[in-house]
């Protein structure tokens, strides 16, 4: 496994979390999300987002409503459902834990174990 591959795996793992984070503040439509993700360099091709949105919607974590657009076709505005909020909260705490572990490992590689078990 080379570095690029590892990086892309990491990005992939984060994608779902990031998309939901973006939607926590306010509903957004796909192109908005794409722009934000591209800025963050999280996706390579735009199309990737669509299967993800469809799947999250299918799982009941997202819902959308139609809004007319001034130019181009009507847009789907996605927002989190209550289930989605709960799910995101779970992801959030998992992320905090992971981030803490990683930063701890970075600062002091000697004692990751007690930190982990103490939680």
């Amino acid at each position: 496994m080379n570095a690029d591959n590892a990086k892309s795996q990491m990005r992939k793992g984060m994608l779902e979390f990031c998309v939901m984070l973006l939607l926590r503040k306010a509903p957004a439509y796909a192109s908005d999300i794409i722009t934000r993700l591209k800025e963050a360099n999280l996706i390579v091709v735009e199309g990737t987002l669509y299967p993800l949105l469809t799947r999250l919607k299918k799982d009941g974590l997202l819902s959308y409503e139609w809004r007319e657009s001034t130019q181009g076709p009507p847009r789907k505005y996605y927002s989190l459902t209550p289930d989605g909020e709960t799910f995101l909260a779970g992801l959030d705490s998992a992320w905090n834990e992971l981030a803490a572990t990683v930063s701890h490992l970075k600062s002091d590689g000697a004692a990751p174990q007690p930190q982990e078990t103490a939680h």
Binding site: G13, V45, G47, P51
Partner: peptide, 20 residues
């Protein structure tokens, strides 16, 4: 097309997380 990606690329990214 290169922005959006071809089907394999679009789906390929999803495959990685093992849920698709």
């Amino acid at each position: 097309i290169s922005r959006i990606g071809n089907p394999e690329q679009v789906d390929g990214q999803e495959e990685g997380d093992g849920t698709a």
